[in-house]
Design a protein around this nucleic acid. Structure first.
Length: 283
DNA sequence: ACCCAGGCGGGCG
DNA sequence: CGCCCGCATGGG
């Protein structure tokens, strides 16, 4: 296994940045290893601290494993160019300097939908907990391992609200129930890949339990629409404190501000704001 | 005990 | 429309 050459990529920071990858896969710090399920096989990605610019990727089919890692970890992104565009001020420069290897990830649209429905009014630990229970209970085991695949919408369409409650979903159980039915019977999330961001977001907003923030998260991390700029409580607080001190801003205004400032790379700017702000206790 | 967490839908003015 | 409120659950 030759491995993949990377620059400005940090597996651990990326894994820890509260993306669907965080909720659905395992990271082993002592081995600097990410393990996730792709279809019916296991993919392992290792970033040895002594050789951080060479990723070792393994799987049943080595070529397919590398292709998967490149896609899901967005290894083709030109981070030097992205850093340059989103480093609009000192705050962003500090965020980039703190986590220069932080990347967005590309996740399955349905997985992203489930993860971010669960994420509302919730915390990262519990989002992970609920997601793992769903996988454990409704996913399909991968042969020779203890891991399970992420259940499809069809598989979850057979789950009851009680089942989701038992996984700890709380008031989001009815949203998950509705989404599983909707994505099985009324819409094919994979068919939305061809749509541009504004139209895609409109489609996603049709789902009960998917509002402005969750729709942007799905667009960004499920479809790779880099202009999407999810505004959650953290991002809102950080934007207000950094760019509008003393003011309380409306989400609508902040969307306009972000679009103006970071444009087509708003999603990356948001991920750096979020991760840096959250990990450095900026409020 | 009390507070909050990657928000959303519904109801009211 | 915009604003306000309740909401399940579990960890700090």
């Amino acid at each position: 296994m030759a491995g993949i050459r990377v620059k400005w990529f940090n597996l651990k920071d990326t894994f820890e940045s509260a993306q669907p990858l965080t909720f659905t896969s395992d990271y082993f710090p002592e081995e600097s290893k990410l393990v996730y399920v792709e279809g019916d096989s296991i993919i392992e990605v290792v970033q040895d601290p002594s050789k951080p610019d060479l990723l070792r990727v393994s799987g049943t089919d080595p070529a397919a494993a590398e292709a998967s890692a490149k896609l899901r970890l967005r290894l083709g992104d030109d981070m030097a160019a992205i850093h340059e565009v989103i480093a609009t001020d000192d705050f962003m420069a500090r965020a980039i300097a703190a986590y220069p290897g932080l990347r967005l990830t590309l996740n399955d649209p349905w997985e992203a939908t489930v993860c971010f429905i669960i994420s509302q009014f919730n915390n990262v630990k519990r989002i992970t907990q609920i997601t793992r229970r769903l996988m454990d209970r409704f996913g399909i085991g991968v042969e020779g391992t203890g891991l399970k695949s992420f259940p499809t919408s069809e598989m979850l369409s057979h789950a009851s609200e009680r089942d989701f409650l038992d996984c700890g979903a709380g008031f989001r159980a009815k949203y998950l129930r509705a989404a599983a039915d909707y994505c099985t019977n009324n819409i094919d999330l994979n068919r939305l890949r061809a749509k541009e961001y504004p139209e895609l977001k409109e489609e996603l907003l049709q789902m009960t339990g998917v509002g402005d923030k969750v729709a942007d998260c799905i667009a960004l991390m499920g479809y790779g629409k880099l202009e999407a700029f999810p505004i959650d409580t953290w991002v809102k607080r950080i934007l207000e404190k950094t760019y509008f001190p003393g003011k309380k801003m409306k989400v609508r205004s902040l969307h306009e501000f972000a679009a103006e400032r970071w444009g087509a790379l708003g999603g990356y700017a948001q991920q750096y704001l979020f991760h840096y702000g959250r990990n450095n206790n900026l409020q």
